[in-house]
């Protein structure tokens, strides 16, 4: 019986690969957009405008303080009643982008704040404009503190993307859920699902650890 189910599972392997592709597409799009928005918000959050800083702070707290599943439901079910009709896929990308951006915003802001003040003072004294300071002095140094947790955040992004299966995005988790209705071997089916996520996440986790070690060495040399 077990080997019969195993064969059944192997026959649905193409669906799992399609699901993996969907997971990569959803997370990849959100990764790009989230990083971009996160950097912009993080730079503003570490900046001088108090009002903007407070607004971003409230946004970050709201996103951090509520479960991602609830955010997904709010975007998918409530936006339509405000007249914004969304398919599951764009709703998922918006929700994940929003989540990732809020976390990256905090990472970037704390990275920028960690750069000693003397650096930007020296840059002002050398006559660099605000943009030049950021571009040539502050950000390159801040990147050392930003990059390792940034990669860690990408791992979280891939894992959190499993939640969007709840609104019907056919990612790896959803394929597993659909398959288990037909092949009632939960351990086997979700073992395979877990393996696919593992294949995506484990290299990223190691990359994060590697970068962290490398960046610390660079820091101590200074």
């Amino acid at each position: 019986m077990l080997s019969f189910y195993f064969q059944e599972l192997m026959r649905s392997l193409p669906y799992f690969l399609e699901g993996a592709w969907m997971t990569i597409a959803v997370s990849g799009l959100s990764l790009l957009a989230g990083t971009l928005i996160g950097f912009v918000c993080g730079i503003i959050r570490a900046g001088r405008n108090k009002l903007l800083r407070a607004i971003i702070g409230i946004w970050v707290d709201l996103i951090r303080g509520t479960p991602f599943l609830v955010q997904v439901f709010i975007i998918f079910f409530i936006l339509p009643s405000a007249g914004i009709e969304l398919e599951a896929f764009p709703a998922a990308v918006i929700a994940l982008t929003n989540l990732t951006a809020s976390f990256i915003c905090e990472i970037v802001a704390s990275g920028i704040i960690a750069v000693p003040k003397g650096q930007s003072e020296a840059a002002t004294a050398s006559g660099l404009s605000n943009y030049q300071q950021l571009r040539y002095i502050v950000l390159p140094q801040a990147m050392r503190t930003i990059v390792p947790p940034l990669v860690g955040q990408y791992v979280l992004l891939v894992k959190d993307s499993s939640v969007v299966s709840a609104i019907g995005v056919v990612d790896i988790t959803r394929v597993g859920w659909l398959t288990v209705q037909r092949v009632p071997e939960g351990l086997m089916v979700f073992g395979l699902v877990g393996l696919l996520y593992f294949a995506i996440c484990y290299p990223l986790i190691n990359l994060s650890g590697y970068l962290e070690r490398r960046m610390t060495i660079v820091n101590t040399k200074l």
């Binding site: 993307s161 499993s162 790896i172 988790t173 979700f190 877990g194």
Partner: peptide
């Protein structure tokens, strides 16, 4: 530790939810 950290909680949840009854 590594297998928990590299898979989503939702998958682990389904793993136990659908998996334990088969055992």
């Amino acid at each position: 530790i590594e297998s928990i950290r590299s898979t989503p909680l939702l998958v682990q949840l389904y793993f136990f939810y659908f998996g334990l009854p088969t055992l």
